[in-house]
Simulated assay, not measured.
Amino acid sequence: VLTDEDFYQVRACCTFKGPHFEKTEYILTSIFNKNLMMEYNSTRGNWTGFTAYSIEAAKWWNSDPFDALTRKIERKLDLFLNNVLKYNLTTIPTVRLKSVKRPNGEHASTLVCSAYNFYPKQIRMMWMRNGQEVTTDVSYSDVMPDGDWYYQTHSYLEYIPSSAEKIACMVEHLGLSEPMFVVWDPSLPVAQRTRIAVGLCGLVIGFVIAISGIIYYNKKSAAYITVLIGALHLLPTGQRIHL
């Protein structure tokens, strides 16, 4: 603040670009009383003036080798901070893929690709069918905060199941050195297969116990009848027995 009426501001901004955010564009702006005066852009590598005074000032700054060196140092510092953020303050997403059947009984289904617990929030999700990007019947949710510095998001693919297709969800994130691929496996999930196996084992054990009980009962009944017949033979002739 220069006076009660005059306000001067310098603002630095670094924009990350590229599939893995490996490229940066450093922009330094000079503002006076909310009017943009000058701007330095690392992509162009020079200052640009927007008023008569700042145009002349930009010419002077562009001819100053010390200013050019200062801008290079600032950009390298931004690259260094970017790497610090990338490798120390990032959390890679946990990706899960599941199928949701439509309630109306239609043959088509919905695949849901969910990314959880990632930071920062910038993320890209794509559907791949046999190695090609799918652009139709695809929708996305917003990137939603979990309330603990982490984020989650979901992507949906409407599809008709086919055994000949290979469908995968591809995820790109700042914390990943390369894209993550999660391939859809149409077989039953491990938990569901485990429940089925446990149920079958219980059914088999119950069947075995029932058969063993029937066999034991038949053997006991046969032994009782044998003993009873033997006792009848020991009775005097003509004597009755009431059971």
Rank of each mutant, 00 (worst) to 15 (best):
V1I: 14
V1R: 14
L2D: 13
L2H: 06
D4C: 04
Y8E: 14
Q9A: 03
R11I: 15
R11F: 10
R11V: 15
R11G: 14
C13N: 12
T15Y: 06
T15P: 00
F16N: 00
K17L: 08
P19L: 06
F21E: 14
F21I: 04
E22W: 01
K23H: 13
E25Y: 05
E25T: 09
Y26Q: 00
I27A: 00
T29H: 00
F32D: 04
N33D: 15
N33F: 10
N41I: 06
G45K: 08
G45T: 08
N46G: 13
N46V: 07
W47Q: 03
G49W: 02
T51H: 05
S54W: 05
A58L: 06
A58F: 04
W60R: 10
W60M: 11
W61C: 10
W61G: 02
N62E: 09
D64V: 10
P65R: 01
P65Y: 00
T70Y: 13
K72A: 15
I73P: 00
E74W: 10
L77P: 03
L79T: 08
L79M: 14
L81M: 11
L81K: 05
N82S: 09
V84C: 07
Y87C: 12
N88D: 15
N88L: 15
I92N: 08
L97A: 07
K98Y: 00
K98R: 14
R102H: 11
P103W: 03
G105S: 05
A108Q: 10
S109I: 15
L111P: 03
V112A: 01
V112T: 01
A115V: 04
A115P: 02
A115L: 02
Y116R: 08
F118K: 02
P120R: 07
Q122F: 07
Q122G: 03
I123F: 08
M126W: 09
W127R: 03
R129E: 13
G131E: 08
E133W: 02
V134G: 04
V134N: 07
T135V: 14
D137G: 11
S141Y: 02
D142I: 04
D142T: 00
V143P: 03
P145S: 11
Y150N: 07
T153C: 14
S155I: 05
Y159R: 04
Y159I: 08
I160H: 07
I160D: 05
S162I: 00
S162L: 02
S162T: 06
A164V: 14
A164I: 09
E165N: 13
K166V: 09
I167M: 01
C169D: 04
V171G: 03
V171Y: 02
G175V: 05
L176G: 02
E178P: 00
P179K: 01
M180F: 14
V182H: 03
V182S: 01
V183W: 01
V183P: 05
W184L: 03
W184H: 06
P189A: 09
Q192E: 13
T194W: 15
I196K: 11
L200T: 06
C201W: 02
C201V: 13
C201Q: 08
G202V: 11
L203M: 06
L203T: 11
V204S: 10
I205W: 11
F207C: 13
V208H: 10
V208A: 11
A210Q: 08
I211V: 15
S212L: 12
S212N: 12
G213I: 08
G213E: 07
I214T: 11
I215K: 00
Y216Q: 03
N218V: 11
K219P: 00
K220I: 01
Y224Q: 04
L234P: 03
Q239K: 12
H242K: 11
